[in-house]
């Protein structure tokens, strides 16, 4: 009986996804060629230490826990899918995507999230023309570094202050998404403001993201709560094993 219910649910969900998939959609990340060379190099330099520390942590933690690598692969696949999953926002008439780095940071820690984000962004740049190789450092800084650390920081802070995991998880998803797009605005403003004042250009870009990213950030907050609750109720031991 249970398997019958599951089958019905799976069929219904897949039908809905097929209906949705008929709609053309697009996504973000800074595309190839938009950033001048010096800015592209600078953002590589900003991201590189985090990536190095992440690889070192991966090497240390995999010696302590042999089950870490499959979990890293799973979280990496989730970040890859979530960060190229375009969602239409009817209020704005545009499409964008959540980032998934907040929830990843809760499960495996922010430094390992930088590592999985770098792999996800590289594959997207190579195979999906989503982002670019020259802008990989900038996209890693916004999505991998800012998204992961902002989400993880707020999750730990709010959980300690309020003791409520769901408020913490919601704010983690919300703020990791907004932090990502704020840093993207900063990257665009710093590289492209020209003779216009930097602050004004930054605010203009940031405000242009608002109609799309406010609802998507809220959606990512709920996504984060759902994913955390799923693990908490079904496999709570995973949170003890893998979280930092």
């Amino acid at each position: 009986m249970k398997s019958k219910h599951r089958s019905i649910t799976v069929i219904l969900v897949f039908t809905s996804l097929l209906v949705l998939s008929a709609v053309p959609a697009f996504a973000m990340h800074i595309t190839e060629g938009i950033l001048p060379v010096q800015w592209a190099v600078l953002w590589f330099a900003v991201s590189a230490p985090f990536l190095f520390l992440g690889l070192r942590e991966l090497s240390l933690r995999r010696q302590q826990n042999a089950q870490l690598m499959p979990m890293i692969g799973l979280v990496g696949a989730a970040v890859f899918i979530i960060s190229c999953m375009p969602i239409p926002v009817p209020a704005a008439g545009t499409c964008s995507h959540p980032c998934g780095t907040g929830i990843a940071a809760i499960f495996i820690g922010p430094l390992l999230t930088v590592v999985v984000s770098s792999v996800a962004l590289l594959l997207q740049a190579l195979f999906l023309a989503h982002g670019g190789l020259s802008t990989l450092g900038a996209n890693l800084a916004s999505m991998g570094v800012a998204g992961a650390f902002a989400g993880y920081g707020i999750f730990i802070l709010v959980k300690r202050l309020t003791g409520s995991w769901w408020i913490a998880a919601f704010l983690c998803g919300l703020l990791s998404d907004w932090a990502t797009y704020s840093v993207t605005s900063l990257q665009l403003a710093s590289a492209l403001h020209g003779t216009a004042p930097f602050g004004k250009f930054f605010l203009t870009v940031l405000l242009a993201f608002v109609p799309t990213q406010v609802p998507l950030g809220i959606l990512e907050g709920f996504l984060c709560v759902g994913a955390y609750r799923f693990i908490l109720t079904r496999r709570p031991e995973l949170l003890k094993i893998f979280t930092v």
Binding site: M28, T31, G132, L192, A208, F209, T212
Partner: peptide, 23 residues
């Protein structure tokens, strides 16, 4: 239903005379 890459990032990049290149 353009993505924010087109409606925001590329818009400001083109205005700043930095249009996106081919991959």
């Amino acid at each position: 239903w353009a993505g924010v890459d087109e409606s925001v990032v590329e818009k400001f990049a083109i205005e700043a005379k930095r249009p996106p290149h081919e991959p």
